[in-house]
Computed example of a mutant assay.
Amino acid sequence: MTDPAAAPTDPTRVVVVDDQRLVRSSFAMMLSVEDDIDVVGDAADGAQAVDLVRRERPDLVLMDVQMPVMDGIAATEQIVSDDLAKVVLLTTFDRDDYLFDGLRAGASGFLLKNTEPEDLVDAIRSVARGHALLAPEVTLRVIERMTSDDTPTDSVAPSPDLARLTPREREVLELVGRGLANAEIARRLFLGEATVKTHVSSVLAKLQLRDRVQAVVFAYENSLIRPGNSAG
C-alpha cells in the first residue's frame, strides 16, 4: 500500500497519447475530475507526444503503443532517455508482445485500456510517487516471453555491476526478477518485509536502476532468470 505521506504536494501533470480521439477524451475525462491530477495536453502519435512533452514537461505520460508516424515504444525511449517524464504504456493482454520492448524503452509500467476509472487514478498516483506499475501477472507474462526468447542470454557477458551486490542482495534481485513481491520474498528468505524493502532499495541504487521494472529486465539480461524458473 502506498504511503500517503509520500504523495506529491502539487497536482500530477499528465499527457494522454492515443491515435483514437475517443480514447484520449475518455481518459482525460476520467482524470479531470481529480483534484490532484491535471491533464495538460494530448497527442495523436508518438512524434506529437515527444514535442508536447518537451513543451509541457508533464510528470507522467499515458502512451498508446500502436500509432502512426512514431509508435509508443520509440516515443517512450526518447522521452525516458531525455528524462522528460515517466511513461505508462496503454496496452491490452491480447497484444502483450509489446511488453518487453516497452520495458527496455524505459516505461514505468502498463495499464489496460479497459482499466476501471478508480484503478487508473490509483495507478497514476502510484507512479507519480515513484513506484513501478507492473502487476505480478504482467511480470510473469513478461518473464515468460523473455525466457522463451530464441536468443540465449548465456552468451552475453554479465554486467560488472553484479559484483557490487552482496550475496543476499543478489538473491533478492533474482526473486524480484521472478516476479515476487516484497512480502513473498520475505517469506521465502525468512526476513522481515522492511528488511527486504531495504535490500531492494540497495539493489536499485547499486545497479542504477529506476524501479523494479528495470530490475526484472536486468535480472533476465544477466541470466539470473532462466527458462523454467520464472515463477514459484
Rank of each mutant, 00 (worst) to 15 (best):
D71A: 11
D94L: 08
L60R: 04
D96N: 04
D64M: 08
E56K: 06
T76I: 14
V88A: 11
V88L: 15
V53C: 04
D97L: 03
R95M: 01
T91H: 00
M67H: 11
D97P: 00
D83Y: 00
T92M: 12
V88K: 03
F93Y: 14
L60H: 04
K86F: 14
V69C: 08
R57S: 15
V80K: 01
A85N: 13
R95K: 07
V69A: 14
L60W: 08
M70A: 09
R57C: 14
P58F: 06
E56V: 01
R95C: 00
P68M: 10
D83Q: 03
Y98I: 07
Y98K: 03
P68C: 11
L62S: 03
P68D: 10
A75E: 04
L52R: 14
Q78W: 06
Y98S: 06
E56C: 01
R54V: 05
V65N: 01
Y98T: 06
F93A: 09
D82L: 13
L60E: 07
V61F: 08
G72T: 06
V88T: 10
D82F: 01
R54Y: 11
L84F: 05
E77H: 14
V53A: 00
I73R: 12
P68Q: 08
R54K: 15
E77W: 02
R55A: 12
V88D: 04
L90S: 01
V65T: 05
P58T: 12
R95G: 01
D59I: 04
S81N: 14
Y98N: 02
F93V: 09
L90M: 12
D59Q: 05
L52G: 07
L90H: 05
M70I: 09
M70T: 10
D71V: 12
D64Y: 10
Q66R: 11
R55M: 03
V65R: 03
V69R: 15
P58D: 09
Q78P: 03
M70G: 07
Q78T: 10
A74C: 06
V61D: 05
A85F: 13
V65I: 15
K86N: 15
R95D: 11
A74Q: 15
S81K: 10
Q66V: 13
A74G: 13
L52H: 07
R55E: 13
L62P: 02
M67F: 14
V53N: 00
M67G: 13
Y98E: 01
D59H: 15
P68I: 09
K86Y: 07
D71I: 12
V61R: 07
R55N: 03
D96K: 08
I73F: 10
P58L: 12
D94R: 13
D83K: 03
D64N: 05
L90Y: 04
R55F: 00
I73L: 14
V69D: 15
I73K: 12
A75Q: 04
L52K: 12
V80I: 06
I73C: 12
F93M: 12
V69I: 15
D94T: 13
G72S: 11
T91D: 00
P58A: 12
L89C: 07
K86E: 15
V87F: 06
D82H: 10
M67C: 13
A74W: 06
D94W: 04
L52W: 05
A74Y: 03
L60P: 06
Y98W: 04
E56Q: 07
D83R: 10
L84V: 10
P58R: 11
D96Q: 08
L52A: 15
L89R: 02
D97S: 05
Q66E: 14
P58N: 12
E77I: 00
G72Y: 05
E77P: 02
D83S: 05
A74F: 08
